[in-house]
Simulated scan of single mutants.
Amino acid sequence: MEENEEGRVKEEDEEEEQEEVWSWGAGTDGQLGTGKLQDELLPQLLSLPSLSAVGSISLLACGGAHVLALTSGGKVLTWGRGTSGQLGHSEMVNSPHPKLVMSLDTYFITHASAGWNHSGFVSDAGDAFTCGDGSFGQLGHGDYSSHCSPVKVSFLDDLGVKQIACGMRHSLVLLKGDSGDEVYGFGSGKRGQLGISKKIKAISVPERIYEFEGVKVTSIIANGDQSAALSADGHLYTWGKGFGGTSSTYSPQSLATSLWFTKAAVGWNHVLLLTADGEVLMLGGNHHGVLGNPEKMSPARLLADSGEAMLEKVPGLEGNRIMDIAAGAEHSVIVTGHGVIKTWGWGEHGQLGLGNACNQTSPQEVSLGHRSQTEATAIKIYCGSGFTMAVRTPHIP
């Protein structure tokens, strides 16, 4: 009896220590996972019973109005807008509740990305799968068809895909090459977002970006008509639609700065950058206050050529070490070393989580509900175009 009692207590403790998943902002397509088709102005704690059998969340990928969730067991759950087949459920309908992607059940999925209306997945064997809207070739299957179940990108067979990044109507993949990491692009290229050094309407087969020869790329990022990559030595490369009103760039350009960046979050008109010292800087425009109040910000580091976008510190974060960053279409989110979430920018759908639909020009604190101040937690944040999600887990010493 004592052993049973101890076991029951242990189970209860483990239950109490389970992760929490929160969402807020635009929700009319079911992308918040609450089961309701409405916007939420404050963070909502989700009930995800389907996770109990497949493990904890290891990654969320948020798109135009849909979400992909990877679990520690290599499974995939999706929810939200599915009218282009981007949920991978073999049908083109929305889903307000998380559902397993059954066609990927025999694979161990390690990476995923959500675009505007398409999705990409990578398995531990290095295979890439895509589904959803393919009308710009962004699925990489050599045609312009859409698919409602994930289809393997045959062009990339045996090449060892590491990551995939989905933008508005284009996709990037990161491979491990012999001389360095290889990056490929496919889909819409009107704004230069494919990085293939020429203006092209669209391509439906992955094409290599040769500027990365000899560069060790650690991550690729895509959003809107923008593309970016981070290298192992902390350099940021950007291409596609220009930031801050600058012209489009058709091949990757390295940001001229001595700073070492560990993470980049790309919006439609701006980029957030996290340095190795836990400082956040921003590159790009200020529409809807997405980058703070430009009248109160003093110019900091500039790109090499005059007239290019300005790199500046985010105001109001002095004295904080930043642990994570995320960017929606035109809003920004950060997590401090004390586990505090702060948001600013476009707030029309409640994506700032502040209880209103107002824009904010400086970081504002978001509350995820009561937790003991002595209880250490880790928070990861993710942004869709007009919504935000957070995963809070107990800190394991």
Rank of each mutant, 00 (worst) to 15 (best):
Glu2Met: 12
Arg8Phe: 04
Lys10Asn: 06
Trp24Leu: 01
Ala26Lys: 05
Gly27Cys: 03
Gln31Ile: 00
Thr34Gln: 06
Lys36Leu: 07
Pro49Phe: 02
Val54Pro: 03
Ser56Ile: 02
Ala61Glu: 04
Leu68His: 12
Ala69Gln: 09
Arg81Gly: 13
Arg81Asp: 07
Ser84Pro: 02
Pro98Cys: 10
Lys99Gln: 14
Asp105Ser: 12
Phe108Val: 12
Ile109Gly: 05
His118Asn: 09
Gly126Asn: 02
Asp127Val: 03
Gly137Val: 15
Gly142Asn: 11
Leu156Tyr: 09
Asp157Val: 01
Gly160Pro: 11
Arg169Trp: 13
Ser171Thr: 10
Val173Cys: 13
Leu175Cys: 01
Val183Lys: 03
Gln193Arg: 07
Gln193Val: 03
Ile200Phe: 04
Lys201Arg: 08
Lys201Val: 05
Ser204Met: 00
Glu213Asp: 15
Lys216His: 12
Val217Asp: 09
Val217Lys: 01
Ser219Glu: 12
Gly224Ile: 13
Asp225Asn: 14
Ala228Ser: 04
Leu230Gln: 00
Ser231Thr: 15
Leu236Ala: 12
Phe243Ala: 04
Gly245Asn: 04
Ser247Ile: 07
Ser248Asp: 15
Pro252Val: 04
Gln253Ile: 15
Leu259Gly: 02
Ala264Asp: 06
Leu273Glu: 03
Leu281Ser: 04
Leu281Gly: 03
Met282Asn: 05
Gly285Asp: 04
Gly285Cys: 12
Gly292Trp: 00
Asn293Glu: 10
Glu295Trp: 10
Met297Val: 08
Leu303His: 02
Asp305Trp: 07
Ala309Glu: 00
Glu312Asp: 10
Lys313Ser: 14
Arg321Lys: 09
Glu330Phe: 04
Ile334Glu: 01
His338Phe: 08
Gly339Glu: 05
Thr343Glu: 10
Thr343Trp: 05
Trp344Phe: 14
His349Ile: 10
His349Leu: 01
His349Gly: 05
Leu352Asn: 13
Thr361Phe: 08
Ser362Met: 15
Leu368Phe: 09
Ala376Asp: 14
Ala378Trp: 08
Ile381Asn: 00
Gly386Leu: 00
Pro394Ala: 13
